[in-house]
């Protein structure tokens, strides 16, 4: 490995220092997950899989962990898909078509994004109850997806704005319909945007806590975050198990990152080359 120049080494030290709180948190998570007892960052108890027993048995009246895991996978997957599809269609319309109220709509979308989800939660609660969607996965999926849409629309609009008009005209002369134009020409060309938005939506949905916590009651519909939370709410908190569940909760994200690393780094590092 080539030696870094001194100035870079200094930068590296600074980055390491800044990451220290997060890194020690992760270290705690790893250690606590695998040992009976941990003092500070020093393990004192036995090493063993005891904290992981939630994987094969239902712990303390909770459903098996595989149920919230399944729910979370469905939740994040569907939210990401809906967000990517709906935002790209809306953004394409805003970017390419002229219709009355276009500017007003664009402003409204931005204003909507300014409201934090928590401030809307009571209204959302009543609406979902009215629609019979309270305490259902479908209900939270719809709410979460709509809250992500404003950002998605703005992001995708930026990408579509960069597409050349001549290219779309060429496609029209070649014989496409509006729909084929969107599907076969416009979408493939904003693929980096789709990937970025999809990843953000997926991660945001995976980590979402407030919505599932308030809008879902039955434990059959729990998401992972709500499942994890129940361990913290007890009189006696089993930190070993909290850590183990936390690690388990993080595994799919890590897997996703490892699989998609090449693409993601490409996006953030200046776009996928065409």
């Amino acid at each position: 490995m080539p030696l870094l120049p001194p100035r870079w080494r200094l930068l590296l030290v600074a980055i390491a220092a800044l990451s220290l709180p997060i890194l020690s948190g992760l270290a705690w998570l790893l250690l606590t997950g695998w040992f009976d007892q941990v003092h500070g960052l020093v393990p004192t108890g036995r090493l063993g899989p005891d904290n992981w027993r939630f994987l094969w048995e239902a712990v303390g009246g909770r459903p098996s962990v595989w149920i919230p895991l399944r729910n979370s996978l469905i939740f994040s997957g569907v939210v990401a898909t809906v967000v990517v599809l709906a935002s790209s269609m809306a953004a394409y319309a805003i970017s390419r078509l002229s219709f009355p109220g276009r500017a007003a709509y664009l402003g409204l979308v931005l204003v909507l994004h300014a409201f934090p989800a928590v401030s809307l939660i009571i209204a959302i609660f009543f609406i979902l109850r009215r629609l019979g969607l309270f305490d259902t996965l479908t209900g939270v999926i719809l709410v979460k997806a709509s809250l992500e849409l404003p950002l998605g629309i703005w992001l995708m609009k930026g990408f579509f704005d960069y597409l050349s008009w001549e290219m779309e005209m060429a496609a029209l002369v070649d014989g496409v319909s509006r729909w084929t134009l969107f599907w076969r020409i416009a979408l493939p060309m904003v693929r980096p945007g789709l990937l970025a938005l999809g990843t953000f939506a997926l991660l945001s949905a995976w980590g979402e806590f407030i919505l599932p916590f308030t809008l879902i009651v039955s434990n059959q519909n729990w998401l992972m975050s709500a499942y994890l939370q129940t361990f913290l709410g007890e009189a006696f908190t089993d930190f070993g198990m909290v850590a183990a569940v936390g690690l388990f909760y993080a595994v799919p994200v890590i897997v996703l990152f490892l699989l998609g690393q090449r693409y993601l780094l490409n996006i953030y590092g200046g776009g996928v080359k065409g």
Binding site: S164, E166, M167, M169, A170, A171, V173, I185, P188, M189, R191, G274
Partner: peptide, 13 residues
Amino acid sequence: VGMVFQSYALYPH
């Protein structure tokens, strides 16, 4: 009709 554009407008993907 067939048309050639100034920027060629080929589909890059």
